[in-house]
Design a protein around this nucleic acid. Structure first.
Lengths: 199, 199
DNA sequence: AAAATATTTGAACAATTGTTTTAATCATTT
DNA sequence: AAATGATTAAAACAATTGTTCAAATATTTT
């Protein structure tokens, strides 16, 4: 019984996560979630009160997933800059390969509801006070470290955001995208070093 | 009369473009568009038949805007690689500064409807057969040129996609974002050269 | 000016959608 | 086996939403 309850609750959450990340809040209907989960429509409200509450739950998890991966990496002062970059890229490409819809969903919903994001994570403090920032500043004090964060995240995340464009353009297919991402695990750290060295 | 007709038609299009790019298709209601445009709800269907037809019209324009900017640059064989990169960055940052919501809207809707994107633009041929591709290949034949396209686009576009994140995190404000983007106009070409030189 | 055409309006319709309600079923405890 | 509480199902409700319709107003043409 408690087993069964967790089952349906989890089924609903999984279905909601899939549809919300794929289509966004407004385009996802409660009946779609129920069908995807294979449960009766009423159970959604029974377990989660409302579509909005369910969504906030999912979004919180997704935001933590998206930003949480790399927090241990960028805050660990015992890792030097080059190793941090390697681990950062490694973790991101690995996670996003398994959750390709994550970035566009998270960016969308943060734009729609920035407050929820701020409350969900203390991203400001984590990011700005991280040892990563200091190490970047030490390496090249002339340039705003935000540039490097944007470059590092951009080079890791942007391919997943633009993947549908390249796929539709037939520039790449699923297989070559995977191969490209494997290459990027090694290349991005090299590129980031080249960028950090350039003046 | 013809003047007035164009007026309301343009008012509806402008309102629709604003709301669709801001909130996406599903979250934008026809009544919202009518109110934003200051017109009677029925006029939307009178001029554009349906919400979907209006949306497709807007999306086509936005896709052309997003990809059209740089087509003359990347296809012009008389421009050398370094100049191409400079112009590419220049054009993109300029356009996106004035249309910050453009990237996330375009990426969203291409994911939702890749076919429409393919029909709208022959992006495949434009991109793959561009002189840019050949110039990249000539400069560094060992690496898939798609990497450089992703890096170049990513470094130019990603900041606008992630802007809400950095704003909400209070890492940057509107003014410093503008300043950062001005810096990036000069820095991205330097970085791209550093990347192209690294092996 | 009169007729014809184009535009605008307000009301209504039909379908969709989030939610609630009521009753039935199931598992657990007494 | 009866009772209790949790879970599931089916139906219905109320609000929203895209669209249409018929009438009114404005504009153009004859």
């Amino acid at each position: 019984m408690t087993e069964n309850k967790l089952d349906t609750e989890e089924k609903i959450k999984a279905a909601a996560a899939k549809l919300f990340t794929q289509k966004g809040y407004a385009a996802t209907k409660t009946r779609d979630i129920a069908e995807e989960a294979g449960i009766n429509l009423s159970l959604l409200n029974y377990y989660f009160r409302s579509k909005e509450k369910l969504f906030n739950l999912i979004m919180g998890e997704k935001i933590r997933q998206f930003f949480g991966i790399v927090v241990p990496v960028i805050t660990d002062a015992s890792l030097d800059l080059e190793l941090k970059i390697e681990l950062f890229v490694e973790k991101y490409i690995e996670t996003l390969t398994q959750n390709p819809d994550l970035p566009i969903f998270v960016l969308n919903e943060i734009r729609n509801n920035p407050k929820h994001f701020v409350e969900e994570i203390g991203a400001n403090k984590i990011l700005m006070s991280s040892s990563l920032m200091n190490q970047i500043r030490a390496k090249n004090p002339e340039i705003n470290p935000v540039h490097f964060i944007m470059n590092l995240m951009g080079m890791s995340v942007f391919p997943f955001l633009s993947k549908p464009v390249f796929m539709a353009s037939q520039v790449i297919d699923e297989k070559s995208f995977k191969a490209l991402m494997d290459e990027r695990r090694k290349l991005i750290p090299i590129w980031m070093n080249a960028i950090l060295g350039s003046k």
